[in-house]
C-alpha cells in the first residue's frame, strides 16, 4: 500500500534540489510538478530573465527526462519541430531517412510560442494532443512521458501570433511568473555572481516513478460536494455575464479536478480539500475565460474575476 509520507518525501526532495538552482518561485515549481502529475502541458507567462528556461531545464534534469528547447521565431517551420526526411546514402543506396525533430523529447520547452506562425503552432499543438507526429505517410509516436512547457512574453506583442483560445485551452495551466522579491533577488545575486555559478542537481525521479505518481493522482478520492463546487465554478464562468464574455469549457472542469488531486498528493494528503480547488482555479481558468468590456474598463484582471466567481460559487 502506498505510503503518503513517501510521496511527500519525494516531492520535498524535488523542492530541495530545485532550491539549489532556483531562488523562490515555489508556487511555479509546484504548478509545474502538478502539470507533470496530471500528464499535461503548461503555458508560462513572464517577463524575460525570470528563470523560466532554467527552472524547466533543472526540473527535467532531476526527473531524469530528456530535455529539448525550441526558440520560436516567425520563420520557424513545422518540420523544424517535428523533423524531416533527409536523403542519405547507406551501403551504396540512397534513401530518405526521417530525422526526428526536437519534439521527440520528454520535456519540450517552446520559448515565445506566440512568435511562431499559426501553422507551426498547429503542428506543435497537434503533436501535444495526439502524442504522435505524422511525416509523409508515416506516423511516429512521441516518447513517454511528454510534456510541453511553452512560454509567452507579455510585452513585445507586436508582430506576434497570439494563441487562439481554442488552442490555449489545450494547456492545463497558464502559470504567471512575477518578479522576485528584494530578498530573493539579493540571494540570486549572491548565488550567480560569486565564484561558483553552476549548480548540479541529483536525480530524484525517473519515468517509472512519474508513471506511478500519475496513477496515484488519478486515484486520489474527491468528495461529491467538492465535485459540485468545481462544476459551480465552471458554470459561473459561463453565466456571470457582468464580468465574463466567454466562459470555460468542460476541459476546465476535468483539469481543475485533476489539478486539485495532484495538489493534494503534493501536500501528502489522500483526499482533496476545498483549498486545493481554490488554489488551482487561478492557473486553470486564467487562459480559458475572456473578460467583457465592462470588466476591462474597470481595470479588472482575469485573476480578479476568478476570485469573485469563487466567492459566489
Amino acid at each position: 500500500m502506498i505510503s503518503l509520507k513517501e510521496v511527500k518525501q519525494k516531492i520535498d526532495e524535488i523542492f530541495k534540489e530545485m532550491k539549489k538552482v532556483i531562488v523562490g518561485q515555489d508556487e511555479i515549481i509546484r504548478q509545474i510538478i502538478v502539470t507533470v502529475l496530471c500528464d499535461s502541458n503548461a503555458l508560462l507567462e513572464g517577463y524575460p530573465g525570470l528563470g523560466k528556461t532554467l527552472t524547466i531545464k533543472t526540473l527535467s534534469e532531476l526527473m531524469d527526462l530528456k530535455f529539448s528547447r525550441i526558440q520560436s521565431t516567425p520563420d520557424l517551420m513545422p518540420s523544424d519541430i517535428t523533423g524531416t526526411y533527409v536523403l542519405e546514402e547507406k551501403g551504396g543506396k540512397r534513401e530518405f531517412v526521417f530525422h526526428r525533430g526536437p519534439i521527440f523529447a520528454n520535456v519540450l520547452l517552446v520559448d515565445e510560442i506566440n512568435r511562431a506562425t499559426p501553422k507551426t503552432q498547429s503542428a506543435l499543438l497537434e503533436a501535444m494532443q495526439e502524442r504522435q507526429v505524422t511525416a509523409g505517410n508515416q506516423t511516429f509516436k512521441l516518447d513517454w512521458p511528454f510534456f510541453v512547457l511553452a512560454t509567452q512574453n507579455p510585452i513585445e506583442q507586436e508582430g506576434t501570433y497570439p494563441l487562439p483560445e481554442a488552442q490555449s485551452d489545450r494547456f492545463l495551466f497558464k502559470i504567471k511568473i512575477n518578479y522576485p522579491s528584494i530578498e530573493e533577488e539579493e540571494e540570486i545575486i549572491d548565488k550567480y555572481t560569486g565564484a561558483k555559478s553552476e549548480y548540479n542537481v541529483r536525480k530524484v525521479f525517473d519515468s517509472k516513478m512519474i508513471e506511478k505518481f500519475q496513477h496515484y493522482t488519478r486515484q486520489t478520492p474527491i468528495a461529491k460536494d467538492l465535485k459540485k463546487f468545481v462544476l459551480k465554478i465552471i458554470e459561473k464562468t459561463r453565466t456571470e455575464k457582468e464580468l465574463i464574455e466567454y466562459g470555460a469549457s468542460p476541459r476546465a472542469s476535468i483539469g481543475l479536478i485533476l489539478a486539485s488531486k495532484a495538489n493534494a498528493l503534493i501536500d501528502g494528503r489522500n483526499y482533496v480539500s476545498k483549498k486545493d480547488i481554490e488554489a488551482m482555479a487561478y492557473p486553470i481558468l486564467r487562459h480559458r475565460i475572456i473578460l467583457n468590456f465592462e470588466a476591462e474598463r474597470k481595470g479588472l484582471s482575469t485573476d480578479d474575476a476568478i476570485k469573485k466567481i469563487i466567492e459566489k460559487a
Partner: peptide, 9 residues
C-alpha cells in the same frame, strides 16, 4: 473505491 490511495484514506 479500492485503489491504494483510497484504501489509505
Amino acid at each position: 473505491d479500492d485503489n491504494p490511495v483510497a484504501l489509505a484514506l
